[in-house]
């Protein structure tokens, strides 16, 4: 197995400026600051994003949302995508 992604050990949260609109496939995320629209194509990803704020680490959030470890790399990649458009933010980045 490859080295675990450092993001798994970090604390993240959904940005205060973002609203999630439930949709049949997952959710639509809208950022009121940069006005970007992003689609969360799976309900499980919505669950992970919602769990971020109340979880110690990204790994905790993935566990809470019931994501099998084998799928974590795909979810971390999706989270990095959301981070790139400021949809989610790192808490207390050092």
């Amino acid at each position: 197995m490859l080295m675990a992604d450092p993001m798994l050990a970090e604390a993240w949260t959904l940005s205060d400026s973002v609203a999630l609109r439930p949709e049949p496939f997952g959710a639509l995320a809208y950022h009121f600051g940069n006005r970007k629209l992003t689609f969360l194509k799976k309900q499980q990803l919505v669950d992970v994003v919602n769990a971020l704020g109340e979880s110690e680490t990204v790994a905790d959030a993935l566990t809470r949302a019931g994501i099998p470890a084998a799928q974590w790399p795909a979810y971390v990649k999706a989270l990095r995508g959301l981070a790139a458009s400021d949809m989610i933010l790192e808490r207390n980045p050092s």
Binding site: R21, P22, E23, P24, F25, K41
Partner: peptide, 19 residues
Amino acid sequence: RPTTGPLVNQFEFGLDAPI
């Protein structure tokens, strides 16, 4: 409505509110 595949296939079936 498909559960996987490109988003555009989801759009064909409509959303809960317009975008």
